[in-house]
Structure formats: structure tokens, C-alpha cells
Computed example of a mutant assay.
Amino acid sequence: MILRTAVLFVMLAGSAVAQACREDTVHLRGDWGEARFSVEIADDRSERARGLMHRESMPAAAGMLFIYPQPQSLSFWMRNTLIPLDMLFIDPGGVVQHIHHRAVPLDETPIPGGNGLTHVLEINGGMAEALGITVSSQVRHPSFDPSVAAWSC
């Protein structure tokens, strides 16, 4: 029941707000519908290394967006991360290329996302499946170059 309520909140938040691009907001869309997440940005080495470590909880409609300056092969792990996470690996055009569902807290096993990636969106574990977010979903955020973005600001 709690996850169902959280999913409804995330989906309503996606449709109820103006679709303006903001640094602290990520929009997603696909055949499944639309959603919006309030995000913290990790765009330098220190912020990316810290990520969501040591947090005991995260609001349902929240997440962290990791931004890399150049397309590259990305792999994450869950060292010192206390909550299960879904990891959405995203290409320079803002298209989800891979989803790792329910990463296990504290697990140091590498989680490869693929090649040619510039962004990773971490959200609460189980949220991607509950919303129906799939590979090929589009992501909108001001950090995507509008000349290549599938869904630009």
C-alpha cells in the first residue's frame, strides 16, 4: 500500500506541475506515462564518490542525478549505501539505456551500466518497476545538450 501511494504521488507530481526545466528536477516519460523526481546533483568527483551513502531513507519522489562531462562506460556499487536503489543509466540524448533494479544495500559488487553514458539517475529501489519505467524511456533535465536531447528543455 505504501509503495502504491508513493507511485501515485510521483505520477501525479509529473503531470500536475509545469513542465519547466529546473536543475533540481528530472522528468521521465515513456509508453508507461510520465513521472517527476526532485533530485540532488552529483556532477564533480567528490559528489559522485559520496552519492547516497549513509542515508537511511529517501522520499518517494526524490533521487540523485549523476552527471559526467563526456560519454563513458559507467559502473556503480553500493558501498556504504543503506537503502535499495534503482539505477537508470542514461545516454547523452537523455534515453535510458539500462536499468538495474533494487541494488542491494552495502554490496560492493560492480553494477555495470554500459558504454557511452553521461548520466545515472538513482531512485528508491522498486520505483522504476512500480512506475513501469523501461529502457528507452526519455529523461529531461537542463544538463542534456538540447541539440541531441530526445526531450529537450
Rank of each mutant, 00 (worst) to 15 (best):
M87F: 05
D107Y: 11
I111M: 09
W151I: 02
Y68I: 07
I41N: 04
V148M: 12
P146Y: 13
W151R: 14
D107E: 09
L3Y: 01
T5M: 13
Q138N: 10
I133E: 12
I41L: 06
S73Y: 10
H27G: 10
G14S: 04
A61K: 02
D145K: 01
I123P: 07
S147N: 14
P59S: 12
I99T: 04
P59Y: 12
L28G: 12
M58Y: 00
P69C: 06
I111N: 08
R102S: 07
I41F: 01
R29G: 01
A61T: 11
R22V: 06
H98G: 01
G132W: 09
A103H: 08
H54L: 07
F89L: 09
P110E: 03
L117M: 04
R36Y: 03
M58C: 01
E34C: 13
S147Y: 08
L88D: 01
T81V: 05
P59A: 14
V17W: 15
H141A: 05
V7A: 15
A6P: 03
T109S: 10
G114S: 11
W32M: 11
A150K: 12
T118P: 01
R102L: 10
F144T: 01
Q19D: 02
P92G: 10
V139T: 05
V10P: 00
A49P: 04
E34I: 01
G94I: 10
V96H: 10
R79L: 14
L3V: 06
L121P: 04
T109A: 13
V17C: 12
S46L: 14
M87C: 11
A149L: 03
Q72C: 08
A18D: 13
G113E: 02
G114D: 02
T118N: 11
D24L: 09
M1E: 12
I67R: 03
P59V: 08
I83M: 02
A42D: 07
F89T: 02
S46C: 07
N115E: 15
A103C: 13
R48A: 04
A128P: 03
R22Y: 03
E129F: 05
V10L: 00
V120G: 04
V148Q: 12
